Amino acid sequence: MTQQQFNDLLQALRKEAMSNMIKASIRQQFPEPLASQYCQRFDDFKMVIDLLEYKAKQNGM
């Protein structure tokens, strides 16, 4: 594994851990079904951000 691959993996793990912490916080602060709805919207938003990051990497940014 190259250093760049290791760094990419580490960044992905950090993003996933942060995402899980945010969703846990949402679930603690809001009752159901709002918590599930907010978590789903957060996941949708995260997917858009991931797509933008992927496209930026493809374009060499």
Score class of each variant (00 low, 15 high):
Gln28Asn: 11
Leu51Val: 09
Gln4Glu: 11
Lys15Phe: 06
Glu53Leu: 08
Asp43Met: 00
Ile22Gly: 02
Arg27His: 07
Met18Asn: 13
Leu13Gln: 14
Gly60His: 02
Ala17Asn: 13
Pro33Ile: 03
Leu34Gln: 06
Thr2His: 08
Met21Arg: 15
Leu51Ala: 15
Met18Lys: 15
Gln5Met: 12
Ser19Glu: 08
Lys15Val: 06
Leu9Cys: 10
Glu16Ser: 09
Ser36Gly: 14
Leu51Pro: 02
Phe30Val: 12
Met1Phe: 06
Gly60Phe: 00
Gln58Arg: 07
Gly60Ser: 01
Ile49Ser: 03
Ala17Gly: 13
Leu10Arg: 15
Lys57Cys: 01
Ser36Met: 04
Lys57Ala: 03
Gln5Thr: 11
Thr2Pro: 09
Leu10Asn: 12
Asp50Trp: 00
Gln29Gly: 06
Ser36Ala: 10
Tyr38Trp: 09
Lys55Ser: 13
Ser19Thr: 10
Gln28Trp: 13
Gln4Gly: 07
Ala17Tyr: 12
Glu32Thr: 12
Phe45Val: 01
Gln4Pro: 07
Ser25Gln: 09
Asp44Cys: 04
Ser36Val: 02
Phe6Pro: 01
Gln5Leu: 13
Gln5Ile: 10
Gln3Trp: 11
Ile49Thr: 04
Ser36Arg: 01
Asp8Tyr: 12
Ala12Ile: 07
Gln40Ser: 09
Leu51Asp: 15
Met61Pro: 00
Pro33Phe: 01
Leu34His: 02
Met61Cys: 07
Ala17Trp: 09
Ser25Ile: 05
Phe6Ser: 10
Met21Ser: 14
Lys15Trp: 05
Glu53Ala: 08
Ile22Cys: 03
Ser25Met: 11
Met61Tyr: 09
Gly60Arg: 01
Leu52Tyr: 08
Gln37Gly: 05
Ile22Pro: 03
Tyr38Asn: 00
Asn7Tyr: 09
Met21Val: 13
Phe6Gly: 06
Ala35Ser: 13
